[in-house]
């Protein structure tokens, strides 16, 4: 397992896709900071449209919306794992005697690390930039910081659950193009569709609240965690994560490799 993980890290270091995505993440965060900074220069009244703008509020907002980074990681996952299938480098690991379970887990850990790297970069550059321009915020209490940390933690758990679902698609489809073709539309429209469905009735809303999509909607509430029940949130994520990972393994275990 350690050897597989080491190989994945070597691949990540040499990956052009990872390099491009790091540049994109930096560019996006600078763009975020730049836009707010520019608006601040042009007009204070225009800035009021965005609500209270400072480092703390930007950090809270960013924990609610991880879609940019998630999209980047899904592309990276499709490129790395889909590329492994088409180049047959993944098959080499099977022939070298590694279990398919270990192969899946090593891939998932790599994807999770990529997420952490990209998110940390994106988050810290944006928050630091905003803090430099607007300050971190007035009247920040320790409760507010604790809530921010909790939101970051829940956001990470949600991201891992969603990534396990995209991982399932990657191992089912075994190709970069097909994975991107399925996962990106799902990311773009999936939450919107679920949101619409949840408005149909209370029962549907309750059912959806037991899915990661439903819980991610609650986490998406930008300024608080009032709607989120942390225990239910974590349980839903763990159950779905285990389900997606088990399905990935079961589909890959019997898969015919070319």
């Amino acid at each position: 397992m350690g050897k597989l993980f080491k190989i994945e890290m070597m691949k990540l270091r040499k990956s052009t896709a990872m390099l491009v995505l790091l540049i994109v993440a930096i560019a996006l965060s600078l763009l975020n900071v730049g836009v707010y900074g520019l608006v601040n220069l042009v007009s204070d009244s225009l800035l009021s449209v965005f609500g209270k703008v400072d480092g703390y509020n930007m950090a809270v907002t960013m924990t609610s919306d991880t879609s940019d980074i998630m999209m980047m990681v899904v592309i990276l996952m499709a490129v790395l794992i889909g590329g492994d299938f088409s180049a047959r480098t993944l098959q080499t690991q099977v022939a070298a005697g590694y279990s398919r379970f270990k192969i899946i887990i090593s891939r998932f850990i790599t994807v999770a690390i990529s997420y952490v790297i990209l998110y940390t970069l994106y988050f810290s550059i944006t928050v630091i930039g905003m803090t430099i321009i607007f300050g971190f915020g007035d009247g920040i209490t320790s409760d507010m910081v604790s809530e921010l940390v909790l939101k970051l933690f829940l956001s990470f758990i949600m991201a891992m659950t969603m990534l396990s679902m995209y991982m399932l698609f990657t191992f089912l489809l075994k190709s970069t193009g097909a994975t991107i073709g399925v996962c990106l539309p799902l990311m773009l429209f999936g939450v919107s569709i679920i949101q619409m469905l949840s408005m149909v009735s209370e029962v549907v809303y309750d059912i959806i609240s037991f899915t990661p999509f439903g819980q991610s909607m609650l986490l998406g509430d930008m300024f608080g965690l009032e709607e989120v029940e942390p225990i239910k949130f974590i349980c839903v994520c763990i159950v779905w994560f285990s389900g997606f990972m088990s399905l990935s393994f079961l589909s890959f275990r019997k898969a015919e490799l070319k």
């Binding site: 050897k3 597989l4 080491k6 190989i7 070597m10 691949k11 040499k14 990956s15 052009t16 180049a87 047959r88 480098t89 098959q91 080499t92 690991q93 070298a96 590694y98």
Partner: peptide, 20 residues
């Protein structure tokens, strides 16, 4: 099965890691 964006040297290094 080769990593095309890596050198021949790196490819063999990866294979060495694979087999410990």
């Amino acid at each position: 099965a080769l990593y095309k964006n890596m050198s021949a040297y790196d490819n063999i290094e990866i294979q060495k890691t694979l087999y410990g």
